[in-house]
Simulated assay, not measured.
Amino acid sequence: MSADDARPNQQPPWTAIILAGQRPEGDPMAAYCNVKYKALIPIAGQTMLERVARALIGSPHIGRIVVMAQSPEHLKAGLSPDLAEHEGIAFVESNDGIATSIHGVIGSDIAPWPVLVTTADNALLTGEILDCFFQGHNGQDVAVGVVERQTMLAAYPDARRTWLKFRGGAYSGANLFALHNEAAKPAVAFWSAIEKDRKKGWKIFAHFGPWLLLRALSRTIGFKDAMTQAGERMKLQAEPIILPIAEAAIDVDKPSDLELVTDILTLRCK
Rank of each mutant, 00 (worst) to 15 (best):
residue 1 M to F: 12
residue 9 N to M: 09
residue 11 Q to I: 14
residue 18 I to M: 15
residue 20 A to H: 13
residue 24 P to T: 00
residue 24 P to F: 08
residue 24 P to N: 04
residue 25 E to N: 05
residue 28 P to G: 06
residue 31 A to C: 03
residue 33 C to H: 14
residue 33 C to T: 14
residue 34 N to L: 02
residue 34 N to F: 05
residue 37 Y to H: 15
residue 40 L to Q: 10
residue 41 I to K: 14
residue 43 I to C: 06
residue 43 I to D: 11
residue 47 T to C: 15
residue 49 L to F: 12
residue 50 E to R: 10
residue 51 R to H: 07
residue 53 A to R: 00
residue 54 R to T: 10
residue 56 L to F: 08
residue 58 G to Y: 04
residue 59 S to F: 00
residue 62 I to A: 09
residue 65 I to G: 08
residue 68 M to G: 11
residue 69 A to S: 13
residue 69 A to C: 08
residue 70 Q to Y: 06
residue 76 K to T: 00
residue 76 K to R: 13
residue 80 S to L: 06
residue 81 P to K: 05
residue 82 D to L: 01
residue 82 D to E: 14
residue 85 E to Y: 11
residue 85 E to L: 11
residue 86 H to V: 03
residue 92 V to K: 02
residue 92 V to W: 00
residue 94 S to A: 13
residue 98 I to Q: 06
residue 102 I to G: 15
residue 102 I to L: 15
residue 102 I to F: 14
residue 102 I to A: 14
residue 104 G to Y: 00
residue 111 A to P: 09
residue 112 P to N: 04
residue 115 V to D: 00
residue 117 V to F: 09
residue 117 V to M: 11
residue 117 V to R: 09
residue 120 A to L: 13
residue 121 D to E: 15
residue 122 N to C: 10
residue 123 A to M: 05
residue 123 A to R: 00
residue 131 D to Q: 12
residue 131 D to T: 14
residue 132 C to L: 10
residue 134 F to H: 08
residue 136 G to D: 10
residue 136 G to R: 13
residue 137 H to F: 13
residue 138 N to F: 06
residue 139 G to H: 10
residue 146 V to S: 05
residue 147 V to N: 04
residue 147 V to M: 05
residue 147 V to C: 00
residue 150 Q to I: 07
residue 151 T to N: 12
residue 152 M to I: 14
residue 153 L to N: 12
residue 155 A to I: 04
residue 156 Y to K: 08
residue 158 D to M: 06
residue 161 R to T: 01
residue 164 L to C: 12
residue 167 R to T: 06
residue 168 G to N: 06
residue 168 G to H: 04
residue 170 A to D: 12
residue 180 H to Y: 07
residue 184 A to N: 03
residue 187 A to S: 10
residue 188 V to R: 09
residue 190 F to G: 11
residue 192 S to C: 07
residue 192 S to V: 03
residue 194 I to M: 11
residue 196 K to E: 08
residue 196 K to M: 08
residue 198 R to D: 02
residue 199 K to A: 10
residue 204 I to F: 08
residue 205 F to A: 04
residue 206 A to Y: 06
residue 208 F to V: 00
residue 210 P to H: 00
residue 211 W to I: 04
residue 212 L to H: 01
residue 213 L to Y: 15
residue 213 L to H: 14
residue 216 A to S: 07
residue 216 A to R: 13
residue 217 L to F: 01
residue 219 R to K: 08
residue 223 F to Y: 11
residue 225 D to H: 06
residue 225 D to Q: 14
residue 226 A to K: 03
residue 233 R to K: 15
residue 238 A to Q: 10
residue 240 P to Y: 03
residue 241 I to E: 00
residue 241 I to K: 02
residue 247 E to L: 03
residue 247 E to T: 13
residue 248 A to M: 09
residue 248 A to T: 09
residue 248 A to I: 08
residue 248 A to P: 11
residue 250 I to N: 11
residue 255 P to A: 00
residue 256 S to H: 05
residue 257 D to Q: 12
residue 260 L to M: 05
residue 263 D to H: 11
residue 265 L to W: 01
residue 267 L to K: 15
residue 268 R to Q: 12
residue 270 K to C: 09
